[in-house]
């Protein structure tokens, strides 16, 4: 955070994608493996959990003032009688 701020003050375009990506991957729960030869996806090998992006979303949610939206099921479709079928008595 503070490194980013000082980077910005120094030079608006001094942005290092690799460093930033590493920073984010930590938030996303990257499991960095000790040995480099397993997985090896690019410069940072390691196992990214399935909910990696969800984790990041949770972490950054506080930056957003987006209004919550209203979700419902009733009334979202036209009520139709169910198909007639055999009822075992």
């Amino acid at each position: 955070g503070k490194e980013k701020a000082s980077q910005l003050q120094a030079d608006g375009s001094a942005f290092d994608p690799t460093a930033y990506a590493e920073h984010l991957l930590t938030f996303m729960g990257l499991n960095r493996l000790e040995d480099e030869d397993s997985d090896g996806e690019g410069p940072s090998g390691g196992y990214l959990p399935q909910d990696a992006w969800q984790r990041l979303g949770n972490k950054v949610q506080g930056c957003f003032r987006t209004a919550p939206s209203f979700h419902f099921m009733l009334g979202s479709f036209l009520a139709e009688p169910p198909a007639p079928r055999q009822r075992v008595e």
Partner: peptide, 29 residues
């Protein structure tokens, strides 16, 4: 928190497509 109205406006809800809602209805059946 629930909705209690069934109108032309409520049917504009866009969380699920028509065929997805049909599948949901069939699941309820």
């Amino acid at each position: 928190l629930v909705n209690m109205a069934e109108t032309d406006v409520t049917r504009m809800s866009s969380d699920y497509a028509d065929n997805e809602l049909e599948l949901f209805r069939k699941t309820m059946d």
